[in-house]
Amino acid sequence: MTNLLNPATAVDDGPVPETTRSDWASDQEVRWCPGCGDYSILTALQLLMPELGVRREKTVFISGIGCAARFPYYMNTYGVHTIHGRSPAVATGLAMARPDLDIWVIGGDGDMLSIGGNHLIHALRRNVNLNILMFNNQIYGLTKGQFSPTSEVGKVTKSSPVGALARPFNPISMALGAEASFAARTHDMDRHHMQEVFRRAHDHDGAAFVEVLQNCNVFNDGAFAAITKKDVRKDMLIDLQHGKPILFGSEEQYGVALAPEGAVIVEVAKLGLENVMVHDETIRNPSNAFALSRLAKTPDTPTPVGVFRSIERDEFSSSVAAQIDEIQAQLGQGKLENLLRSQPIWEV
């Protein structure tokens, strides 16, 4: 329904003004620990926003609770810092009420996979037009160092002094299992890679899930160092490129192939390039993407990054709006007088 009272819908549709990073940075002092990976994610996004062709006033950052959830305070856009785990739910309501907005949902692994796991999977299943960035540092930071749902088995923390027992979530596997139409992974050590993945997430019509491997230098320092440090990246990060064979290594000497037991790492020279898996984000069956998500068991073996899956699927809030439009086209705008007389009536 056109909301005549809402001044926000009356915005000039002229060209989007040119902006720079500083236009997207709020005046608030950033209060993450010095050296936190969140800084580089913030920088990457603030630098990217001017390139996305969106208006600041149409951009909303919604977060839950945790270190990552402070993100909205630092963006000069609209923003709501909500409650623990519920940001996908709040964002879903906002997206349904206001399909004109560009909504980013920011949270950590505890926020999104533990207390808010239910909301995340349903937002993905419904395919609500949200850009969901989950900063995965495999630890609870804001509560000062308990194991998280992505912490490895055996992790020694304050709440697991002799080692965490439960098997961690694989965020990409979980997103794919939740019918995500877009699932990607990037990491805080590579601004360019983050920006390309964030851009793809933004351009995706539907729920875009991005796992950002993020270093918590206070409570879980170096969790991803074995794969993200500059000198090891070529051998340890497998950059997924749509339509291209999945190769990695300084000489692209390694590849990924599909074996009966799933995706496996092979030497290209031995197996032949023609037997290396060609990455296709758009296959509707998520099996290949799922196999890729299972390739690295722990963050010290070669790990795929990039877009695992990106398929077209009906977006939820526009489908909801379409139902309303269709009914209104059939019946016209509802009239309260008629509603009150829609049951049997009698006159006295």
Partner: peptide
């Protein structure tokens, strides 16, 4: 919604949107 909390969370989001 998927649960009671998402139900009110979505309503808060919608209110925020006008």
């Amino acid at each position: 919604a998927e649960d009671e909390i998402a139900a009110i969370g979505s309503a808060v989001g919608a209110s925020y949107g006008g």
